[in-house]
Design a protein around this nucleic acid. Structure first.
Lengths: 220, 220
DNA sequence: AAGTGGTCTAGACCACGTC
DNA sequence: ACGTGGTCTAGACCACTTC
């Protein structure tokens, strides 16, 4: 079926035969046809609706998958030495614009720096909801970064990610050792478990050393 | 099962009971348990290996999905007016660094501009492999952008995406009407069908008006 | 070697949404 | 109303990989 989609035997807009017909044609059971069709849906190649049937769609979605990396692994796997420094930690307050995401919940506010071969790689500015993650109040984050601790311990179900480019500002210049006019790559991430807010983080990378690369291959 | 993962009845590192046991416990058939477990694998919550069993993993992968948008839709759905202008088109050559991705294949080289409410929104610099997409030689791309035409007509199976931040250079300043020192958000995308290269594109957006937002919710 | 997940079958019934 | 996809079952057998 994938081959027929790729060689445009079934071009965009076509309806495929229904499950029972496909099962007969390929001499397999309906269940097997279903699993195959489901994987085509997952790959974003067709869409299915009851009664309407299975339709070939334009290929655009499902291009790439972003991950929440452990910065340490990211750096070490690239063959560099990882370093970490806690810059700041307190309960409550923050100049981050959280747009009321956390309501009145008590927050832990942490700033830290991830280093690659001793040089600033990422400046992390984070808020943690102590209502939903009470253990976060006891963590010092002196040795272990919030990033690493959270990924290891706290499950989430919803993520919102924003990627953008920015110019280096005051804290970037100080912590990331940049100059005014330098470029910053910003990742903001907000995670929740169900409707409970967990954490919001703003990650700032020197633009000249950082990029996100994703690869996907859904080949035949 | 999702609930047990979220409330850490089954914490990271645990092995789940095997399929037959779960089937008995939840009073369903093994097939049903399997489908549920498969969706947990897709969500990146567990990993499974024969004989070794089903294991709870750290939650980091599978955060967000990037799409290959049709720029027109992206702009119009945000409530703006879309505009398009072909800047340049020829066969062969290019100053883009394609790192030998296309080998000796004949290429179509196109530059164009996507406008939002009359203002430059995205500067597109693209190479199309005419060996694998011969129809691309006949398209003028005067009315219809390569982006739109390709998404509608050409299936792909592999995508490589690079996201980064940059400073505005010569062409950005001219086409995107920016000033030296302004920030650019760059998306580079390379697509292929199997091992056949299809197209490489570099998209440049004014950094102050552009960001990528992705949301995922795998809630209970 | 044994135990786990992986694949397949044949059949039943359900539920949605288009016609 | 009816045709399509969606869900479930009970069972068989296979294939990998760890013990």
């Amino acid at each position: 079926m994938l081959q027929r989609l790729n060689d445009r035997t079934w071009p965009v807009g076509t309806n495929l035969p229904h499950e029972v017909q496909l099962a007969e044609e390929f001499q397999v059971s309906r269940g097997t046809v279903r699993r195959a069709l489901e994987s085509l849906v997952d790959a974003g190649l067709v869409e299915r609706r009851r009664k309407a049937g299975t339709r070939v769609v334009e290929r655009r979605a499902y291009a790439s998958t972003l991950t929440i990396p452990i910065v340490r692994d990211e750096i070490e796997q690239a063959g560099y030495r990882y370093g970490y420094k806690l810059l700041f930690s307190q309960m409550g307050g923050s100049d981050l614009d959280t747009q009321g995401l956390f309501g009145e919940a008590p927050l832990r506010w942490v700033k830290c720096l991830h280093l690659r071969d001793g040089r600033p790689y990422q400046y992390e500015d984070r808020l943690i909801n102590v209502d939903t993650i009470p253990e976060a109040a006891e963590q010092s984050f002196v040795e272990l970064s919030p990033n690493e601790w959270l990924v290891a311990h706290v499950p989430y179900s919803a993520v919102r990610t924003v990627l953008r480019a920015d110019l280096a500002g005051g804290e970037d210049i100080r912590y990331l050792q940049l100059r005014a006019g330098d470029v910053i790559f910003v990742v903001e991430r907000y995670t929740a478990l169900g409707k409970q807010p967990l954490t919001f983080v703003r990650l700032r990378h020197p633009g000249h050393t950082f990029q996100i690369v994703t690869e996907v291959d859904t080949s035949c």
